[in-house]
Structures are given as C-alpha cells and as structure tokens.
Design a protein around this nucleic acid. Structure first.
Lengths: 329, 329
DNA sequence: CTGAAAGCGCTAACAT
DNA sequence: ATGTTAGCGCTTTCAG
C-alpha cells in the first residue's frame, strides 16, 4: 500500500503539501497540486483510514443499529440509509439488536469504541444511557422510527397517532361501532401511539374501545383473537397495529372462513407485499420507508456538519391511508 | 479514552506486559496478570482498534456486500451473518450493491482499503478482478448464494439445479406436458442453474421446454406472460424461478381470474410470506436462508484461522420442496 | 519473564 | 505557500 510519504517523494514535495491536496485543507499552488495529483494517480495512493482515526480525525463510518434485518421494513430502511451514506462518502457499520436491549447496549458501545462518526438507530429499550454515553463521546445519535426515551437527540418518525386515528375513523364512517384493535404486547413507542390513535377516534365517536394484546407475554394472535371475537359484543371490524400482527389476523380469519369485509372489516398499519395478493386486498396505512431511511441519513450528515451544541431536530413524516377492499369501500 | 499506557501506569508494570495480558501473546507471571486485569477493570480500558490496524494487525471487521437489503432473502441472510460474526467478536461493514456491478466493485475496493479482515459477498457480476485484488491484498473472500465467476474462493450455495429438476418433475408427475418456466432475464448464476434444472427435467420426460424471460430488457411479467399463455401450445403449469417473478405471475393469474391449480398449476423457487396467505397456497422450493448466513459467517471465521494457501471449500446446501396446493396435490 | 524503544501513516502545530 | 517535527495507541524487536 502506497503511503502519503511515497507520494511526496515521487512528486518531489513535502508530506504536508500532499496531505493538503488530498484533504483540501489549505490553498496550494497549482504547480504543486498538479504534481501531487499526478503522483497520486501514478501509484494509486489511497489514504489510510486507520491512521486518520488514530490521529483523532473523525472517521467516515456511520453506525446503524436496527432490531431485525430480516424485517422488510427495517431492511428497506437500511438499504436507503446505506445508499445515501455511500453517496456522501460514508460506509455503514451495521448491527441487528434482535429486539434485545442488552445486545443493543453492547453494540452501541462497540461502535463508539470503533470511532463511528455517528450512530443511526431504531431504538428498542427504555433504559438509554448507552446513547447518552455515545453523545458524550462526541458521537451524534439519530433515532429512527421512534424517539429515544429520556434523551435529547435528532429523531425521524411517522405520524403514528394521526394515521391510526384516521384509519379508525374510516372504519367508524363505514358504520362500524364495535372495532377491535389488535397490537403487540411490548412497550414499543410506535405501538403505543397507534393504540392511542385508535382509542382517541373511538372516544370521539362515543364508542367503547377494545384492545387485544398479543405476543410472547399474552399469547398468540389465534388464541387471543378467538377469545375476543366470541365476546358478547362481537366486533365487526379490526384495526391491526402492525403488519406482522395484521398477517396473523388475516391467517386467523382465513382459517375460520370469516368473510372480509362482509363479516369483519380490516385495516392494517404497514403495507406488506401480500396485501395486494390476497382477496380481498387489504386496506393499509403505508409508511414512506425509503424516505425514512434516506432522510435519516441526510439528517445525520447535516448534524455532522453542525456545531456540537446545535439543538436536536425532530421530524415527523406523513403516512398514507391506502384504501383497498378489506375496509368495505 | 484510557490507553494501554494508562493501564501500565496504574498496574505499575511496563506497557508490554499489559499488551501481552490483553492479547494472550505470551506467558506472564500470575502476579503481573492479576495486577493488569485489576487495572483494566478499574479504568474500563478497551483496546483502540485503529492503532492495532495501523500497526498492521488484522482488524476484527468483516465486509458484507449484498445486492439489496430490502429483499427479504438477503435481509434474512445478513441478519444471520451479522449475528454469527458478532458472537465471534467481529462487526460487519455492510453495503448494498443495488445489483450494479460498478458499485459492487467500488464497495469492494473501499472495504479492502478499510482493512476488513474478510469479505462476504453475494456477487452480481462476471468481471470479478476486484475480488481477486482483495485476495491478493490478503483479504479472504467467501461467496454466498452464487460462486464468483473465474475466481477460486470459498463458496456457499444451494442445490438450485437439483431442486428445480425435482420441482419440474413434480409437475410432470401431475400429468402436465406443457410447462412454462418464467425467469429473470439477467445473467445470474442462480437463475441459470434453475432454468437448467427445469430444462433437464423436461428433456428427460421427452417434453418441449418453453422459457419466458422477464425483466428490464425483455419486458414485464404481465406482458411476457400474456404472450406466452396465448401461444398455440398453451401451458398448463408454470415454474417461477424466484419469488419476485413468482409473485408477479401470481398477480397476473389473479387479474385474469385464472384458476390455480385447475387451469394452471404453479411452483415457485423461494418461499415467501404471502405463499401461505393466498388461496390456493403456493407450493415452493424453500431455501435454508438462516443457515446460509450462519454457515457463511462460520466459513469465513474458519478461513481466517487457516494458512493463506489452504484450498477453497465449496459447500452446497439442500433445499426442500414444500408441497402446498398450487401444484395440484 | 519483563521492559524500552522504534515506528505503523497521518495531520496539527509550528517553523520557514 | 511550503516544509519539518511530534505523537495519536499499539505491537514487533531487541536488550536485560
């Protein structure tokens, strides 16, 4: 590997001239610049990032932590982030936290230790001192999809509450008075916002709310649903708070040959590829996944150019209610 | 950040004793070891990777390049790789090539320049000198899902040909004599193996092959299918060579209300979540995605322990034909 | 078994 | 505008 000193020798100039040409830190005479560029071209010089980091310069690697890369939502998000980062000359160090808080904590620490220039994260926990430590170490943090609890940081989210409110209202407008909300049983920000949106819409319409929680703690969708649907006030519509739950609900309804939307109408938060393949097609709230990733990267890049004490910005993106057939339209 | 020298000062020993304890490079007296460990614990010392790399030591970062993180297949694969790598103390520098050869090439070079310890890649092109350069620079390469053309390297693939052969045979056994194969129009290894498997099965059964290529060059699935299905010898079964194509085929058949499997039977390479949601459920060839990722990481870790000239190993994993309803069973 | 010194490639600070 | 020096934190080499 050719070094900066090699370039200097060939160009017949000092090492600092080369460094200055490479980094554009200062003005250099056109004469010298030409010689240096020629020498770089000749031996194919490329800066050694490790040496730069060691010297204390910011690295050009961004850390990215998401709960699960196999989830299409996060996958698409990562894709967009990686692409935007690459275009700006950054690479991405990626890690999946597997929805485990402890793992996320360790990954964060290792990334900081590895001198990432910034950290993009879809946070999963409530105990977030590791992110605070990262900030203290000079690594800015951008929260994606959910804000980081108890921490001042840039964040990029979607209008979970408003969208859920609108979707629920849409079901009410169809004449449903008994609408069931099915959601994950974990304490995730997005889920809580979505349930709130549902509840608010129901309250405003003067209707009773029924929230059915499913997951590792409470039980499978099939179990929980069979209980909820046999209640005296049997629901005529379901609002599923995310695509995984939505798919499970769909499976359940299919298994018991419940006709959608005639017997039960359905709206699901998150679009998913099967939504237009099944019959009837599923009405969903569509999130701007690619934009989420792309803008998160952009947010980080801007943050890296700012003074360290610039106030955090919180951006909320709009979702869209995609009307298909399962709502009864 | 505490340094090795700090630890040495606190422990009251030389820096090298600390280094030796940390790396286990040589025997150290129990006395010294105890003191060093205590000092490390006390100030929370963590080695500086940049300095290590600069000194010429191998890094503990693995590079990972896949065509598209938003594709659930690659997403799941990355997930498994990242997890296995993490457990072995490695982090992963990830990049999506966006199916563009030029981008893959540049990403490879940057990764090598960044001193990744090894490179895991789902290769997309045929011009593969960048991987050769990586190897020459001492960075081992493991090919995932497809071998790297014109290059000796470890590789981990699935039995594309045999699986396609079996699936096609299954359709033949159902009495179909006119089976259409729908595949991507790009020159991807997996697609070519799968088409070959289909062709071989047809030839062995004494039947004529019809391959319908779709994609950016030839045209959409809808366009190509409407031509193929109106041919004089109209097919009674379709073998879709991957999940994306399969889903598009399915959409087409639904749009024109073709009854599956009565009018046309369908088998698809790759399982996908919608396969069990639609009616009829789709018979698929299921790939061991998680195992693919997990073993790829393992392969790399073993390679990193081997002498540089150890011969490459090529492993082929088995797929499974998951019989559902769309084949007519 | 242990320590001291040299230097990996780069850039901030100082000198010219 | 340009060159020289020092040192980031670590490990290899050589001496004790």
């Amino acid at each position: 590997m050719p070094t900066l000193a090699d370039v200097a020798k060939i160009a017949g100039v000092g090492v600092m001239s080369v460094s200055r040409v490479v980094n554009g830190t200062r003005r250099v005479s056109p004469e010298v610049e030409r010689k240096v560029l020629a020498a770089i071209e000749k031996i194919g010089y490329q800066p050694n990032e490790a040496a730069r980091i060691l010297k204390g310069t910011k690295s050009s690697v961004l850390g990215l932590i998401v709960p699960d890369l196999a989830d299409p939502f996060f996958g698409a998000c990562c894709n967009a982030i990686q692409e935007a980062a690459w275009d700006a000359g950054y690479m991405t160090l990626m890690a999946a936290s597997g929805h485990r808080e402890e793992l996320e904590r360790r990954e964060t620490k290792v990334m900081v230790q590895r001198h990432v220039a910034g950290l993009l994260v879809v946070p999963i926990g409530s105990q977030n001192d590791h992110f605070l430590e990262a900030q203290k170490a000079g690594v800015p943090v951008v929260a994606i999809d959910r804000p980081i609890k108890h921490l001042e940081s840039d964040s990029l989210t979607v209008d979970n509450l408003a969208a859920s409110f609108r979707a629920t209202q849409h079901l009410v407008d169809h004449g449903h008075r008994n609408i069931l909300c099915v959601a994950d049983d974990e304490r995730i920000y997005t889920k809580e916002e979505r349930v709130s949106g549902y509840c608010r819409a129901m309250r405003e319409a003067g209707l009773a709310t029924t929230v059915c929680l499913v997951g590792p703690m409470t039980g499978s969708v099939a179990d929980q649903l069979s209980i909820a649907l046999k209640a005296t006030s049997s629901p005529t519509a379901i609002f599923a708070a995310n695509n995984l739950v939505g798919v499970d609900v769909l499976r359940y309804l299919q298994r018991y040959s419940v006709r959608v939307p005639d017997n039960i109408a359905l709206i699901c938060f998150d679009d998913f590829s099967a939504a237009t393949l099944v019959s009837p097609t599923i009405t969903v709230i569509q999130q701007p996944v690619a934009e989420l990733g792309q803008r998160a990267a952009q947010m980080m890049l801007e943050r890296l150019k700012m003074p360290a004490d610039a106030p955090p910005s919180r951006v909320v993106l709009s979702t869209q209610l995609i009307i298909r057939k399962s709502c009864g339209c």
